[in-house]
Design a protein around this nucleic acid. Structure first.
Lengths: 196, 196
DNA sequence: GTCTATACTTTGATAGAC
DNA sequence: GTCTATCAAAGTATAGAC
């Protein structure tokens, strides 16, 4: 588990490095040699810690990145005075990170999810589990604000879809216009749900 | 140009096959050998028609797929009695195609766009041009329905982001729930813009 | 557990016969 | 223009010394 993993160890460095590379170059575009080189780890260590090779490493990175990103977003959410502001702040924060990283750091698993959807069943399942955990996390927040169950889930899916879709447009265009527009639409959708 | 290209020729078969493979396996995940094998074309023909190799082929496929998909979506749009129904029908149609293709055929360039965003500038530019053409196409439709310029562009970006984001969630989960939810939100956003 | 060297496969790309 | 043979490099994975 990622919980009981000491930072700074070889395994931790491999996981962190792989997460970073997956976000930028995807699963197929990230080589194991590049991972160990960037992580300053000997090649053998990779197969010592991940006997299942690239796929086992990939599954663990997806779950780990997914959990960390959920915590990050929930943190932004909870810091806001209300959920409409919270949703807005998530999109604004994502735009800021994109600009600061030269449009490289967006969603940690989106590229991988599309790459493996039709090619690697264990990895596809891992991405599906992460997205479902995000949907459930957001649904809980919306329900706590008084939105009914069914609407809360639809709203969660839509907000996450807006964010993921805006990431694609923003990275392709190297501009944050898409995140601004999608953020406004997401906030408006939440407002509308609150008024029901 | 794709316009003056006779169907059934070796070059056309290579382009069509590559488009199909890019949609399912992405850019890095599609090998040139797989392309010529699926297209029933000799290996040398690929470099005869595309001297720039994989990158030149990729740029042409992106532009071609982008133009075809725009026509497809505009066709669905124009067949609907109003733009709210048109938007709804696009999401419903996309869901149907996904189910029919075992969740393989979604957006023709989304996977490639994410893969190349930080790694291949000519390909990134090609995807950015395609997305921009889609945004402008949708903006024109919304303006024609009486929505002001600025709102129409924001709405277009949001609807496309909802579709692209829902594709990611749908392919990962192998379910169309995300397309249903995103489609409802998109239709509601258009309705809200019409009421302003 | 750490690390190096290497095996085997696949990749994109090229040369040259026809 | 068509097609085959082949190259150099990069990919994943393994063996085995320490």
């Amino acid at each position: 588990m990622a919980a009981n993993l000491k930072p700074g160890t070889t395994k931790a460095r491999i996981l962190d490095t792989t997460a970073e590379l997956f976000m930028r170059y995807g699963y197929t575009g990230t080589g194991l040699k590049q991972i160990v080189a960037d992580a300053n780890a000997p090649f053998g260590s990779l197969y010592h810690h991940f006997p299942g090779g690239k796929q086992e490493l990939g599954v663990e990175v997806i779950h780990r990145s997914g959990a960390m990103y959920l915590e990050l977003v929930l943190g932004v959410f909870d810091a806001a005075p209300d959920i409409v502001t919270g949703v807005h702040d998530c999109f604004a924060g994502a735009a800021e990170v994109l600009r600061a990283t030269d449009y490289a750091d967006a969603c940690p698993i989106e590229t991988v999810a599309l790459e493996v959807a039709s090619t690697n069943e264990p990895l596809r399942e891992a991405t599906a589990e992460v997205f479902e955990s995000w949907i459930e996390g957001a649904t809980e927040k919306f329900r706590a604000a008084g939105i009914d169950d069914s609407t809360a889930r639809e709203l969660s899916i839509s907000v996450i879809a807006l964010l993921e879709g805006a990431f694609v447009l923003a990275r392709a265009s190297r501009a944050t216009e898409a995140l601004d527009a999608a953020g406004k639409t997401a906030a408006a959708a939440v407002e509308a749900a609150l008024r029901r």
